[in-house]
Simulated scan of single mutants.
Amino acid sequence: MPRSHYEKITTPDGDFDAFCAVPETTPAPAVLVLQEVFGINDNIRGLTEQLAEAGYLALAPDVFWRVEPRFERKDESGLADGMAHVQQLDFDLVPGDLTAVMAHALAMPECNGRIGAVGFCLGGTLAYLFAGTARVDGRGPDAVVSYYGSAINGMLDLAPRLECPVLFHYGAQDPYIPAEQIDEVEQAFSGRSDVVLHRYEAGHAFSNWDAPTFFDERAARTAWPRTLDFLEKHLR
């Protein structure tokens, strides 16, 4: 079983926490787990621990720390609170925070020097942002997985800066991400053999087992092994 605790991440304007799960065997590749609007909740901690069980040093940073440290909501009842926090999130500061987490993870003795990220919902957008902006000693992440990031099609000018392999998961019936926006993302990376995009007969947040109106077990059970295979290929 993986061991879990909170790591303290230091930035120029303050410290914040990252939930961390350590695999049985180290050093190992590191994976950042980037949160939904519900914060670092049971779902995100569970996914972080699943990655550790798969052999990764997994860290889920508290992205909302400037708004409300350790904010978490369990399910759909917390959606309004989470969306209000997104409105207060300073997207100009987030890349620096994610870079700080990357640097911290790479410096941990449990990390073998390889690093990636998996993000969900808000975190799906942040995973894309992480791939395009996070650089430590001149190198970026080695692989990134993005689940239904709704703002990505508005950030496609960043696409040429994504230097690592990327896996995108989208729900074909996502009310928040129209099919034409998914098409735009697919077209932006059409010349990249190391970028894969999958669509599922599901809606938004289909991976979140704590949110019954969103969760789609069939889609989640298909996407997660694809995620693990992708990380295995590019981080091992």
Score class of each variant (00 low, 15 high):
155 M>V: 09
176 Y>A: 13
179 A>F: 07
201 E>F: 05
165 P>N: 02
167 L>Q: 12
186 E>N: 06
176 Y>N: 14
161 R>H: 10
200 Y>S: 00
166 V>I: 09
194 D>R: 02
134 A>I: 04
170 Y>F: 13
145 V>R: 00
190 S>D: 15
137 D>T: 06
170 Y>T: 11
150 S>W: 15
185 V>H: 04
141 P>K: 08
134 A>V: 07
172 A>Q: 03
191 G>T: 07
180 E>N: 05
199 R>P: 05
200 Y>H: 01
134 A>H: 14
135 R>Q: 11
183 D>K: 06
191 G>D: 10
136 V>M: 12
139 R>V: 03
177 I>Y: 14
172 A>F: 13
189 F>T: 01
151 A>C: 09
156 L>M: 07
181 Q>D: 09
195 V>Q: 05
166 V>L: 15
178 P>C: 02
156 L>K: 10
189 F>V: 05
175 P>G: 10
143 A>G: 08
158 L>C: 08
144 V>K: 00
159 A>I: 02
154 G>E: 11
196 V>N: 01
179 A>R: 14
192 R>Q: 13
146 S>Y: 06
178 P>E: 08
148 Y>F: 12
181 Q>K: 15
191 G>M: 01
190 S>A: 06
133 T>R: 15
135 R>S: 05
146 S>G: 06
192 R>T: 11
171 G>R: 10
197 L>Q: 02
